[in-house]
Amino acid sequence: MIWRRHWVSRSETLYRDIASLRALGAGIEGEPGVGYILRPGFLLPPVMFTAEEVDALVLGSLWVADKAEAPMAEAARKAMARLTAVMPIELVDRGGGPICRCGAERTIPSRDN
């Protein structure tokens, strides 16, 4: 029975994930077939990206911010702001300047003109 193999595979994955979270210190109570509850106070560790993954996220977000309609463009800008706020500085500030510049660039007129 295909559905049984699928269910067994999914439930084994679930049990393995619960075991992994418990190993990280999550207060998960319960047992298979009964149910589980996550006690308050557990936070997952932050997600870390490689420099190449950051580049891919930034390029994709810059494209969306430039090409998409207003709501999606704004969502891309907000997502990048959130990501860069929690990234290590060496990933945010590679190459001597900010890795992410979302939004239209403006030229500020000088006072001399």
Rank of each mutant, 00 (worst) to 15 (best):
I2H: 08
R5F: 05
R10E: 11
S11C: 03
T13I: 05
Y15W: 04
R16G: 06
I18N: 04
S20C: 05
S20N: 10
R22N: 02
R22G: 02
G25Y: 07
G25D: 08
I28A: 08
I28N: 04
G30P: 01
G30M: 00
P32G: 12
P32E: 13
I37Y: 04
R39S: 07
R39T: 05
P46A: 01
P46Q: 00
V47L: 14
V47P: 01
M48D: 12
A51P: 01
A56N: 11
L57G: 11
S61F: 04
L62M: 15
W63G: 03
W63F: 13
A65W: 09
K67F: 14
M72N: 11
A73C: 07
E74D: 11
R77Y: 13
K78Y: 11
A79N: 07
A79V: 06
L83F: 11
T84G: 01
A85D: 11
A85I: 08
V86F: 13
M87W: 14
M87Q: 14
P88W: 15
I89P: 02
L91R: 07
R94T: 05
G97A: 14
R101K: 06
C102W: 06
A104F: 07
E105I: 05
R106K: 08
P109V: 05
R111W: 00
D112Y: 01
D112I: 01
